[in-house]
Design a protein around this nucleic acid. Structure first.
Lengths: 249, 249
DNA sequence: TCAAAGGCTGACGCACCGTCAAGGTCAAGC
DNA sequence: GCTTGACCTTGACGGTGCGTCAGCCTTTGA
């Protein structure tokens, strides 16, 4: 037999369970006017008609798709055309979210691999190059921190500077100088080799002056970037002194 | 030259922008102890070292993956093994979320197709069958609402009942009776054909009594389900009366 | 008949910040 | 030297989407 339209037989719990939302959520939707309040039975209980199931499933489908309730509210009163275009937008949004989640999966996986992956590839590549040359882990970490700070402070130029650096590393003389400088960290500050090294450094500084970091980064900031060297190496402090003597004279 | 480790040159804005979070978020992380407060400069501004960039990227990566801040807090102090297993869990969670989003895309797409798709396939199939028989849209809607209410009230049995109904529809006599009943909705309540129809209905009811809906659904609920017929059809009211005469006598 | 289950209306809580408010500080240009 | 606008500080309220508790009433099933 045909079962006729009905004014309301479902209790709030049956409705909620069947649709797959909580009772609290249904009441919340009533409070905000999203779902119309149904008639009450003689003891004040809400009694829902079949239409409420249909309405609630629409709401659930949209909210599960991440549509805010205020938007759902609008959509419910929208024309079919508005609704259709909105649905398309939402669908595109979901596609985008799926893509984002894939990216985040990659990001999370990178956390396992240490901190290599979440720095720009240019920086990590440069750091790998240093490691390959035999630069100490300490040295590599100094470089890493320095480049992080530079990249954060000068996002537009930092990648260019690091490209320059990598070009310099193509020069065998520079590579040798670089490794020596790294080792000097642990030398005695009185070590005579520091004078030799200071000569090389001073010469390089004179050559290099054009079109490099030094143009852009203010002296103040350079000193900030270079601060706390003394926490680590008396030899480097001595070296800096020797270089200063050579460049100011 | 090696750029040494540095106590802090980044302002909060540079840090936040480089990492891709808001300044407000960084301060929030400080408040909750998630990110250590850096040293302040002479005017009380926060000045961040490179390590803060690394820490903040870890936090961002995790929160973007949907990990709650409290959990991030735990993970930061966890052992590497705990961290690794947690990461695996998170990764699985992401995979699950991606699958859910795919499902939601299907659900949203179904909204465009009207209300067919988000009812159980058994019900929509049955409704389609009725349409194919020539049952009026009004009749189909009555059925839909009735079955929705039944399915919500008796989730375990409703699918069985509808299977029975579909078997009945295989009987050509039943089909004819059914279509006639549907049409009777618009008849004059004095139409003599109602008597004929009442005979058929009464006979069917006697036959059907075993093992059907009527066993389970209480009389009260049946009357609720059948309520408000009078809103729609005087002929159906008259018909119900005639059937009652035949079944109670 | 009596406990368990379900219903009702508030009201607070929470996660993760957004967004003022009400200032103090810094860098640059005049 | 002074102003202007960008940036920094703390503090506090707001908002979304309910979860959860309290305190009370009603229905249902054994």
């Amino acid at each position: 037999m045909a079962m006729p339209h009905n004014a309301g037989v479902l209790t709030i719990k049956r409705l909620a369970e069947y649709v797959g939302v909580t009772v609290r959520a249904v009441r919340h939707y009533h409070q905000t006017g999203l779902l119309p309040e149904p008639e009450r039975d003689h003891s004040g209980y809400r009694r829902y008609p079949a239409q409420a199931v249909v309405d609630l499933i629409r709401i659930r489908t949209l909210t599960e798709a991440g549509v805010p309730l205020t938007r759902v509210h609008e959509l419910i009163r929208a024309t079919p055309e508005q609704f259709a275009t909105a649905i398309e937008e939402i669908d595109q949004g979901l596609t985008r979210q799926i893509e984002e989640l894939r990216q985040r999966k990659l990001g999370v996986a990178a956390l396992q691999a240490g901190d290599r992956m979440f720095l720009p590839a240019e920086i990590t590549g440069y750091l790998d190059q240093l490691r390959a040359l035999g630069v100490s882990e300490r040295g590599v970490r100094f470089e890493r921190d320095g480049w992080i700070l530079l990249a954060a402070s000068y996002p537009d130029q930092a990648l260019g500077w690091i490209a320059q650096k990598r070009e310099q590393l193509a020069d065998p003389d520079f590579r040798e100088f670089y490794v020596t400088y790294d080792q000097a960290h642990d030398w005695d500050p009185a070590d005579p080799r520091l004078h030799e090294l200071a000569d090389v450094m001073a010469a390089r500084l004179r050559q290099e002056s054009a079109q490099t970091i030094h143009e852009v980064v203010s002296a103040d900031e350079q000193s900030l970037l270079g601060a706390h060297v003394q926490d680590y190496s008396p030899a480097w402090i001595r070296l800096a002194e020797l270089v200063r003597q050579r460049t100011t004279s």
